[in-house]
Nucleic acid binder design. Structure first.
Lengths: 155, 155
DNA sequence: AGGAAGATTCACAAAATTGTGAATCCGGCG
DNA sequence: CGCCGGATTCACAATTTTGTGAATCTTCCT
């Protein structure tokens, strides 16, 4: 039982707002943050709906989205249909930052644009190639970074 | 003059679509990619409008947004009101990845959530603290990564 | 100064997102 | 076997986002 329920809820909403501002869909962000601060064992869909003051349908959509992204997983409860939802404890942020193939994709598109331009010396081509190189670099270094974090994580 | 104008435009749209899917606003994404592949000297607002097939108003809003983010800058043309817009050639991706203070903010919110929970041993508190530590880690390492890139960049 | 070309702003229309209520579905239990 | 609690889906309503056209403003050129 939290010491300061009021402040906790406020922080959940603020964190969700930050994610939303960063382009993350609103409802999934709220669910995500609610589960972040949840007790061991996660929450059921109806508990989430109650905490956030939204309909069951909204929760259903949000958890489906988050599960697909690979940030959440459903924990079936033995002998009950009230599944609980919880974090992939240690993996969710690495999933968020590293597993996303978006960097590689962007690099690919940069190269394709340069190819379409044709003249390798054209300003646009140079920029596109450099973008490709940059995102390729990020794409390669990110796993290293995550490994470094894993090491740090154990203390 | 690009060898394959058709393919170039298609790639521009695809790249913009990727950014959009990642939560980036649509019109700014298209403008950004159009300028990425532009010739030396950038493009004017009306050229952008023509290339993308949208109104001048849409361009105006998009470039204002991008300038504020710090990804674009306006280059006043001597003796003309047709300013050109171009990339901050080498800085835009580093701006995109590193200058954003969002990691530090999230770390802050994680700690605040743990404080609100009170019991440091509670599952939610542990998760929140770990999130804070992780984003703090990213926030610290990102500048290093950008420096490493700068080194690589020159060959 | 006056005219003109282009950029910006504003009010509004179109379109996409988001969340709801009601209906449907699913599994457990009496 | 049929009821009951709960989750999911669907059509729709509300809200927000996005882009347009018209009006306004700015600055260059004559």
């Amino acid at each position: 039982m939290p010491r300061d329920e009021q402040a906790l809820r406020a922080t959940v909403e603020q964190s969700a707002a930050v994610l939303t501002a960063a382009g993350f869909p609103r409802m999934p962000a709220r669910v995500l943050m609610a589960l972040l601060v949840a007790e061991q064992g996660g929450l059921t869909a109806s508990e989430l709906g109650e905490q956030l003051g939204v309909s069951a349908a909204a929760i259903s959509g949000a958890v489906r989205y988050l599960e697909q992204i690979g940030i959440l997983h459903r924990v079936p409860q033995a002998g009950s249909r009230r599944d609980r939802w919880e974090f992939l404890d240690d993996a969710w942020y690495t999933a968020l930052m590293a597993k996303s193939p978006v960097y590689g994709v962007i690099a690919e598109l940069g190269d394709r644009a340069a190819d379409a331009i044709g003249d390798e010396q054209a300003a646009g081509s140079l920029r596109a190639r450099e973008m490709a190189r940059f995102y390729r670099f990020i794409d390669e270094r990110m796993p290293d970074l995550m490994r470094e974090w894993e090491g740090l994580r154990e203390r």
